[in-house]
Design a protein around this nucleic acid. Sequence first.
DNA 1: TTTATTGATTGCAATATTACGATTAATATT
DNA 2: AATATTAATCGTAATATTGCAATCAATAAA
Lengths: 109, 109
Amino acid sequence: MGLAKTEIFNDQQNKIATYAKVFGHPARVSILQHLFELNSCVCGDLVNEIGLAQPTISQHLKELKLLGLIKGNVEGTSVCYCIDIENWTKMKEVMFQFLDQDITKNTCC
Amino acid sequence: MGLAKTEIFNDQQNKIATYAKVFGHPARVSILQHLFELNSCVCGDLVNEIGLAQPTISQHLKELKLLGLIKGNVEGTSVCYCIDIENWTKMKEVMFQFLDQDITKNTCC
DNA sequence: TTTATTGATTGCAATATTACGATTAATATT
DNA sequence: AATATTAATCGTAATATTGCAATCAATAAA
């Protein structure tokens, strides 16, 4: 019914899925790439560069912030968003462990 | 309106998002972990172990297969699913490049 | 203080996703 | 041939997601 039965999965599986889900939209991928490149960390600049409406970008930023992957610094009327290095590193460990499973065992088909 | 404006993003960004999206559900994470462990590669066994209805598991398997991350071998009335090693490796390269961006530049906030 | 500027929030329409009962298709078994 | 087993497909209900116009809140500039 549109919602995942998270209760039947373990914490690790749910965490992987939650991280992956936030990367599952090209706008959020694009935002994160911009933040890594430091081309534009201000919301308004991201709106101009990406080409989605301001409320839409703001919403995507909110989701990234909610997961802790980015943080926002208010500077006057604008807000500067940046990668949260510590949380990004934690996320990377979780995702790497999942993506980098031993593939050599796989001999059945 | 419920659909992503993929046309305003580049191929790499859309590819990352597409891969991530398929990992964005704990059932698919769980299925992949099972296939890596080779605990159960037959659809019916996955149904028993994961605890979702057969049509639901079948649907998730279909999505994984569509992306090429798994392949299915028919064995009598049952179907044995396995990781597609070649495609999994390709996916890993794309995702690693995205997740492993140089974080040291990040000094603005 | 009045008026920009910037970004968050609200509300809504369109579409996508998740889950499963019922059914169907294909192969095995009897 | 008739029946059982297995997995795919169809149809549908419930919920989530995406995108944006309109509005609001907060600060800056005049």
